[in-house]
Simulated assay, not measured.
Amino acid sequence: MGLFHIGLIINPLAGLGGPAGFKGSDGMAMQALALGVEAKSAQRTQTALEVLLPLRERLEFVTFPGPMGADLLTVMGFAHRVVGELAAETSSAADTHQAVALLQDAGVALILFAGGDGTARDICAAVREGQPVLGIPAGVKIQSGVYAISPRAAGELTARLVEGGLVRLSSGEVRDIDESALREGRVTARWYGELTVPQEGGYVQQVKQGGVESEELVLGDLADWLQDSWESDVRYVFGPGSTLHGLAQNLGLTTTLLGVDVIENGQLLASDVTEAQLFELVNGHPTRLLVTAIGGQGHIIGRGNQQISPRVLRAIGLEHLRVVATKRKLGTLEGRPLLVDSGDVQLDAAFPDVVRVWAGYKEELLYPVGL
């Protein structure tokens, strides 16, 4: 398995306003520093990252210069790449916006950020839809539902993701109190948007013996979700395997068990296609690719679905790939990563560190990918 890439953004000014009695740090950080208040955001980030030290050989961070991440990672001995430049000696919202854009361009699996509600607002303003982020609480105000309950909890959840634990994706609200109103004695909170955040999922053990999860019920739930969310004039490629075959049956569609089928607007467009036919159908056309994992092995590309070739994958776009697998099936991997073997080394290396797994009705999990 290759290195797991994590983005890190530290707001070095977060939390300064609290000890100074300013009810927040927005616009007041310099005054707090002048009063002798010491910054704590790096220390709280260090508490989170200490949990990851045993996994240091498996990680590479991508971060911003100086106090926004690089300084701490150097001290802690984590491998890291530095992107971007600070606009000034102290950080600003513009720096955070730039950092978010560059970390996403670098393809990080998760963006860890340390700050408060103002930082969450800056992240929300710049992040792309669906990019997983997780806050390390370091601010005065923590109204937003995008932060772990403590710095250590942020580290533990990240470690679980790196180790192959089942980590569920959810939406967290970004809210912030109007600090100027608060200083006048009025409490006014405002909604600024939502971020995609990981939440703790459960490990599923002893999956070959038991009924902690009904495959049939899960496939029915997944079919309901897909039926509720079909995108018009978008082609859905169903890879082979009993999971996707069962999903199609729950949608009232007759697909091939071991073949590749194409569905559009809720109807079967093409059945049991060859690689050449599939490429013709997806090239230049909006497409979503659904594959499943081979139970116990974890291959999602390159085993039994060679119709989904490198040129097909490039035509569809890796960002449009979704794995469909129940938690029971993922449990058979016992924490091992999902595997890709397309036959194209460069393409395999371009796969993200984690992929989204559809595991139930509106239930998405993050799961690691290896080669």
Results as ranks from 00 to 15, higher is better:
298 G>H: 08
90 T>S: 10
18 G>C: 13
24 G>V: 09
268 L>G: 06
363 E>D: 13
336 R>Y: 04
57 E>Y: 02
275 E>L: 01
350 A>Q: 13
323 V>A: 08
168 R>Q: 15
145 G>V: 10
3 L>W: 01
170 S>M: 07
174 V>N: 08
367 Y>V: 12
274 T>H: 04
219 L>K: 04
102 L>S: 05
244 L>A: 08
116 G>Q: 09
211 G>S: 12
81 R>F: 02
164 G>W: 04
9 I>D: 06
296 G>Y: 09
69 G>R: 01
322 R>T: 12
72 L>G: 07
309 S>P: 12
330 L>D: 14
335 G>V: 10
363 E>Q: 14
162 V>P: 10
78 F>T: 13
127 V>N: 04
314 R>S: 11
54 P>R: 09
172 G>A: 09
35 L>K: 15
29 A>F: 05
141 K>T: 14
18 G>T: 14
124 C>A: 15
247 L>N: 10
314 R>F: 00
303 R>D: 06
118 G>N: 11
17 G>L: 12
75 V>F: 00
213 E>Q: 14
281 L>H: 02
142 I>A: 05
7 G>E: 08
59 L>A: 05
309 S>T: 11
293 A>M: 12
48 A>H: 02
87 A>E: 15
133 V>H: 06
2 G>W: 02
308 I>R: 02
72 L>P: 05
197 V>M: 03
168 R>W: 01
176 D>W: 02
330 L>W: 10
287 T>R: 01
221 D>G: 14
90 T>P: 00
196 T>D: 04
46 Q>P: 00
155 G>R: 06
323 V>H: 04
126 A>F: 05
363 E>N: 03
209 Q>G: 04
189 A>F: 00
164 G>V: 10
306 Q>P: 01
325 A>E: 09
342 S>H: 09
208 K>T: 13
234 V>M: 06
167 V>N: 03
286 P>V: 07
258 L>E: 11
141 K>S: 12
336 R>V: 07
49 L>T: 05
26 D>W: 01
84 G>V: 10
81 R>E: 14
283 N>I: 00
352 P>S: 11
182 L>H: 12
192 Y>R: 07
145 G>Q: 06
17 G>F: 11
232 S>P: 13
292 T>P: 02
287 T>G: 02
266 G>M: 03
116 G>H: 07
350 A>V: 01
24 G>C: 11
186 R>M: 12
84 G>Y: 09
272 D>T: 01
244 L>H: 06
120 A>N: 03
274 T>I: 04
345 V>K: 11
196 T>S: 13
268 L>R: 02
232 S>T: 15
365 L>Y: 08
70 A>V: 08
206 Q>N: 15
235 R>L: 05
284 G>Y: 03
153 A>D: 14
229 S>D: 15
182 L>F: 13
144 S>A: 12
